[in-house]
C-alpha cells in the first residue's frame, strides 16, 4: 500500500492507483483468489426487453422505436459482467477486507473530494464474499475522443452488444475482462492462457484481478469502485469431484 500513488486520468475522468515499475508508472492491480459462487458472464446470446431488467443471462434487446432509445441506453450502460467469490470462512477474506480499507484510505489521503461508497460486508452462505463487476459500455460523453473497440467474438458472438451501443455508448479496452486459465509449468513458470468465458462454472477455484477506480459522481466528488479486470481459472477439480459424487449418489438412488 505504501508504494501506491493516486494518478488523475482523463477520458474517462478518473482517479486511479499506480505503482512504479521498471517500465514506468502502471495501474496497480490486485489479485483475489476464491471459489465462484455466483456469476453473470458472457457470451451474450439472447435478447430480453429493456424494461424487463437484467436477468442472469445479461442479455438485452434493441428497441429504439417510440422514443425508447434513452430508456435503452440507460439500461445498456449498466450491463455488466459480474462474479462473486467465497473462501468458505478462510481468514484470508478478513485480511483482504482490511487491505481494501487501507487502499480506500490511500484515495482519501490524496484527495479532499473522495466519497467512499460504504463497503457493506457481504455474505454468501454465512461467510464473507466479494463481488466485482465490469460494465460492457462507457458513455461516449465521458470519452469523446476515444475510438470504439469491437467486442471480442467470445463475448458478443451474435453482435447484440455491438448493435446496441448506438451513438451514446462505446466499448473500450478497459471495459473488457480478460478470461484465461492460469497454467503452472514443470519448471515453476506461470503463464495465462486465453479461455472462453462460457467455460467458467460455479464452484471453480479462480483468481480475480481487480483495480480500484475512482469515478466522478458530482462536481469534485468521486466514488471508489472496485473493477474486475481478469478472471483466471486455477482449478475446477473440487467442482468436478462434487459433480461426480452427486451423479454417483443419484445412480445409487436409481
Amino acid at each position: 500500500v505504501s508504494a501506491l500513488k493516486v494518478e488523475s486520468f482523463d477520458e474517462p475522468k478518473t482517479l486511479r492507483l499506480a505503482v512504479d515499475t521498471p517500465d514506468g508508472l502502471e495501474e496497480a492491480a490486485f489479485r483475489v483468489p476464491g471459489f465462484l459462487c455466483s456469476k453473470t458472464l458472457p457470451p451474450i446470446l439472447r435478447s430480453v426487453c429493456a424494461r424487463g431488467g437484467i436477468d442472469g443471462s445479461a442479455s438485452v434487446t434493441i428497441d429504439d422505436r417510440d422514443g425508447r432509445r434513452n430508456e435503452v441506453v440507460e439500461h445498456a450502460k449498466k450491463l455488466r459482467q459480474h462474479v462473486k467469490v467465497t473462501a468458505f470462512g478462510s481468514t484470508l477474506y478478513s485480511t483482504l477486507q482490511e487491505k481494501a480499507a487501507d487502499i480506500f484510505k490511500v484515495f482519501e489521503d490524496n484527495s479532499h473530494h473522495i466519497n467512499i461508497r460504504p463497503s457493506d460486508r457481504k455474505l454468501w452462505d454465512g461467510e464473507i464474499c466479494f463481488d466485482f463487476h465490469s460494465r460492457y459500455f462507457t458513455e461516449r460523453k465521458h470519452v469523446p475522443s476515444v475510438k470504439h473497440a469491437p467486442f471480442p467474438q467470445e463475448v458478443d458472438p451474435l453482435h447484440i452488444l455491438e448493435d446496441l451501443k448506438g451513438e451514446d455508448l462505446l466499448h473500450l479496452e478497459e471495459n473488457d475482462v480478460q478470461y484465461c486459465e492460469k497454467v503452472y509449468g514443470d519448471d515453476g513458470s506461470v503463464s495465462y492462457v486465453a479461455m472462453d468465458p462460457k467455460k467458467f462454472q460455479v464452484g471453480d477455484f479462480v483468481e480475480l484481478t481487480v483495480t480500484f477506480v475512482c469515478h466522478p459522481v458530482k462536481k469534485n466528488e468521486f466514488v471508489v469502485i472496485p473493477t474486475l479486470r481478469a478472471l483466471a481459472l486455477l482449478s475446477s477439480e473440487l467442482r468436478q469431484q462434487s459433480e461426480q459424487r452427486l451423479r454417483e449418489s443419484r445412480d445409487r438412488q436409481g
Binding site: 476464491g34 471459489f35 468458505f88 478462510s90 484470508l92 464452484g203 486455477l234 467442482r239 462434487s242 452427486l246
Partner: peptide, 20 residues
C-alpha cells in the same frame, strides 16, 4: 455448489495458493 462440495478442501486449496 452442490451438497458434495467439500469446503474443507476448498479452504486448503486457498491456503496452498497463498503459500505459493
Amino acid at each position: 455448489m452442490n451438497r458434495f462440495f467439500d469446503a474443507n478442501d476448498a479452504r486448503a486449496q486457498i491456503a496452498k495458493y497463498i503459500m505459493n
